[in-house]
């Protein structure tokens, strides 16, 4: 192979443009798939992040409002009537579930007070579990993207470097001009993987702590409400 041939074969590589579109378009099909997958993962992660941020803010506001009305001295019956009229979440759901069980036991034909305390606690536990499930839903996606994203990007990089080594073998030339574009493309995959994974990991940790906080708040309210109902049961008996 004479030098001019080498120059000819090298020329399209050297003039490869390093814009984002150029990097994507000149990549191997596998690397392209990896890039597209990671882009979708990133979009998904951010969708979840936005959704969860809004959800937690909403839940926190609802809890604050409910606690305020609960401790304002309003009667439980009245509060139950207003809360059960619309679909309730979190603390309100907990209250509604417990009150429903209470009412069923008292207002039915046969009064079943013996195991009422235990039943109320069970119902509240189930409701707490459901609420936490609702808060935690899709957080696993964040965890998965956060841990697997870099690996997926690395896979694209390895594949891209393999193809760029093949181009070295084809051009029989190891100059930077031959190697650099292929490696730049390949590294672009890792970059996208990191772009997707870093926010996913950060927000996953933040949301997990947020869920724990809200779950503890629910448990605390459940215990308090159980204590109140328990006193009511004992007084009624």
């Amino acid at each position: 192979m004479n030098p001019t041939d080498v120059a000819q074969s090298v020329l399209p590589l050297t003039s490869a443009d390093l814009s984002i579109w150029g990097l994507f378009w000149s990549a191997h099909i596998v690397v392209k798939a990896v890039m597209i997958g990671l882009l979708i993962a990133s979009i998904w992660v951010w969708a979840i992040v936005i959704d969860k941020t809004l959800l937690y803010a909403r839940t926190k506001r609802a809890m604050d409002r409910f606690e305020q009305t609960f401790w304002s001295g309003q009667s439980l019956e009245e509060l139950y009537r207003t809360q059960s009229a619309r679909p309730a979440h979190s603390m309100a759901a907990l209250f509604v579930a417990a009150m429903r069980e209470w009412k069923r036991s008292f207002e039915g034909a046969s009064r079943a007070i013996g195991g009422l305390q235990m039943r109320i606690e069970k119902v509240m536990d189930v409701t707490i579990a459901r609420e936490i499930e609702r808060l935690e839903r899709r957080l696993l996606v964040l965890a998965t993207v956060g841990s697997a994203g870099p690996f997926i990007g690395l896979f694209g990089t390895v594949w891209g470097i393999m193809t760029s080594f093949q181009s070295i073998a084809a051009s029989k030339n190891t100059s930077l001009a031959v190697v650099a574009p292929g490696i730049a493309e390949a590294l672009f995959a890792t970059a996208i993987g990191l772009v997707a994974a870093i926010p996913a990991t950060i927000f996953y940790n933040k949301f997990v702590s947020e869920v724990n906080k809200q779950a503890q708040r629910l448990e605390g309210f459940a215990d308090e409400f159980a204590a109140i109902l328990s006193r009511q049961i004992d007084e009624a008996a």
Partner: peptide, 27 residues
């Protein structure tokens, strides 16, 4: 969430297309 996320990604990509190195690699 999906909508906002997709729009944000599109914006970032568009910004990247404009500002990212468009200079060819002339080694």
């Amino acid at each position: 969430g999906w909508t906002i996320s997709a729009v944000l990604h599109g914006a970032v990509l568009a910004w990247g297309l404009v500002t990212f190195v468009t200079k060819p690699l002339n080694a």
